[in-house]
């Protein structure tokens, strides 16, 4: 329950310096303390040194966009573009394993075969379909826990992404419950989480993006995915710096 957090953020977001990356479009900016720069990503550091950085994005429907060129505008493709720019000399290759309507346990079932591409980093988006099917939180947690352990055993780092903030369906889907739960899993396993749910919520509260007006056009959707890709890029770049985080890093 991070209501307090987002309420405070609304108040401070205008005053506090934003993430110190100058080239983001203004709309992507969020208050600095909302990005969790705690964890170091050792496998990413190794991959960047070796100049070959493979990333695998595992996700459900909100990790892609509808339409013929949906995949090229969605955040995995944006992540690749951003990292290619920010990591000169490194070959960045983002592959995706995205299937709409897939729960975390279902993603776990095919995880091993997806890892065959030997990624150094797995970005795992979950929490939307799980909430829609009101999966038991215990089995949701267990699936995430197992998945993270499997990825780490295969020699890769993990970043979790939670569900989208979707104001119109809020009274229908308990998205926030599952989003919060992913925070706990991330905390417990000491891995970074891109808190997409609360980031999008701050955007909605600040009026950065309008999620409420009905539209058939893809422009807002594409800009949101672009921002998510950039913020994800921030997490990766920050995690690849070997600086001891506060509290010794977990």
């Amino acid at each position: 329950m991070r209501m307090l957090g987002s309420a405070l953020l609304v108040l401070v977001a205008t005053a506090v310096p934003v993430v110190a990356v100058p080239d983001h479009p203004a709309e992507c900016r969020i208050a600095e303390n909302q990005l969790d720069h705690g964890a170091e990503l050792p496998n990413v550091i190794k991959a960047i040194k070796a100049k070959q950085f493979n990333i695998l994005v595992i996700g459900a429907g909100s990790s892609t966009l509808p339409g013929a060129d949906g995949a090229t505008k969605a955040y995995p493709a944006r992540l690749q573009a951003v990292l290619a720019e920010r990591l000169p000399g490194v070959t960045v290759n983002v592959s995706t394993d995205v299937k709409s309507g897939r729960t975390a346990p279902e993603a776990l079932a095919t995880l091993k075969s997806a890892l065959a591409s030997k990624p150094a980093l797995v970005v795992w988006q979950a929490g939307t379909v799980d909430a829609m099917k009101s999966l038991e939180l215990d089995s949701f947690n267990a699936a995430l826990d197992k998945g993270v352990a499997t990825v780490q055993r295969a020699g890769a780092d993990v970043i979790l992404i939670n569900g989208q903030y979707s104001p119109r369906t809020e009274s229908l889907i308990a998205l926030s419950t599952y989003a919060e739960n992913m925070r706990w899993v991330a905390l417990r396993r000491g891995i970074p989480l891109l808190d997409r749910f609360n980031i999008m919520k701050v955007w909605a509260e600040l009026g950065t993006f309008d999620f409420e007006t009905p539209t058939k056009k893809l422009d807002i959707a594409e800009r949101v995915h672009d921002c998510i890709g950039r913020l994800l890029g921030d997490l990766v770049v920050e995690g690849s710096k070997t600086v001891a985080p506060p509290g010794g890093g977990r």
Binding site: G61, R168, I173
Partner: peptide
């Protein structure tokens, strides 16, 4: 809501 709302960003969520 089901009759009035549409946004491609939330295709999956609207499945509910």
């Amino acid at each position: 809501i089901s009759q009035r709302f549409d946004n491609p960003l939330f295709t999956e969520e609207m499945g509910i």
